[in-house]
């Protein structure tokens, strides 16, 4: 049994993948609790998808993929805010428009290169191929997100529960949301390396949604979400190693499995109580 656990760790790429996926899952899940409570799950999905043109442009020009994706993510977040500020268009509509538009731009840019294979790691992630530089980038983002969430915990809580009181005491709910969006963009851009553009929102939302079902306290939800996503990362990576399946897909499937089990068990327990 111990051999089964230790064997993959003989390989450097697996050790790096484990560290990267653990850091990414911890960052995504702790931020994800705020995303779930603020009903920003769709926004997270949109930001993840809209990084595609940024990634492709950066790849074609041999720029940093990280910054290509980050610029696209921040532009999306700003664009959604700008469009939905006009009262006629609601935020979910603005997200829908930019989400599909930017993703389509990415697809068109990829089609110009005539090679979909080169971009498959962007779409579905490649945590097994994470480089040292990427690992350092992921570590820095993890630190930024954790420090940010720690320092701003009371402001994030207040602007979520009672934005009017926040405004009256001089705390801008809009600015706090913007800070959260920047943290989200940073997190999503790093998570893309593990699970890709298509599955990133699952890392952000699914462990947090599972934790919300299990406990009603914010701090416990964050802690539980981190534990669940770490478990999903480790078990997903090992599944990938032993069954030869996609690591990103396996991680997300474990997350989804945890959510489904929790949801079903809770539904059954509730029925029994009633």
């Amino acid at each position: 049994m111990i051999d089964l656990i230790l064997e993959p760790m003989n390989y450097l790429f697996m050790r790096k993948a484990l560290i990267a996926s653990l850091l990414i899952s911890m960052t995504c899940s702790s931020l994800g609790v705020h995303v779930v409570h603020r009903r920003m799950a769709f926004l997270g999905d949109a930001i993840a998808h809209t990084t595609l043109p940024g990634l492709v442009i950066a790849w074609l020009n041999r720029w940093s993929l990280f910054f290509g994706a980050l610029v696209a993510a921040v532009l999306t977040a700003v664009g959604i805010g700008w469009i939905s500020r006009r009262e006629r268009i609601r935020e979910d509509t603005a997200i829908g428009v930019l989400f599909s538009g930017m993703f389509a731009l990415g697809v068109v840019l990829i089609s110009r290169t005539k090679s979909y294979r080169d971009f498959s790691h962007m779409l579905f992630g490649n945590v097994l191929g994470v480089s040292n530089e990427s690992l350092v980038g992921i570590l820095i983002v993890t630190l930024i997100v954790f420090v940010g969430l720690g320092l701003l915990s009371k402001e994030l809580m207040l602007t979520a529960v009672d934005p009017l009181h926040a405004e009256v005491i001089g705390l801008s709910a809009e600015k706090t949301r913007s800070i959260l969006l920047v943290l989200m963009a940073l997190t999503i851009v790093t998570a893309i390396q593990a699970v890709g553009v298509v599955l990133t929102s699952a890392m952000l939302v699914t462990p947090a949604a599972t934790a919300v079902i299990l406990t009603s306290r914010l701090r416990r939800q964050m802690l539980l979400s981190v534990v669940l996503s770490s478990f999903a990362s480790v078990s997903g990576l090992y599944s990938s190693y032993y069954f030869g399946i996609s690591a990103g897909g396996a991680i997300v499937l474990v997350c989804t499995g945890c959510f489904c089990c929790t949801f079903l068990i809770q539904s059954v327990l509730r029925r029994r109580v009633h």
Binding site: H37, M157, A160, V161, D162, P163, L164, R217, L218, Q221
Partner: peptide, 13 residues
């Protein structure tokens, strides 16, 4: 504010 402007479902004591 009026009670409706507060998110009472937020996990807060």
């Amino acid at each position: 504010p009026q009670k409706s402007s507060i998110d009472w479902k937020f996990p807060m004591t």
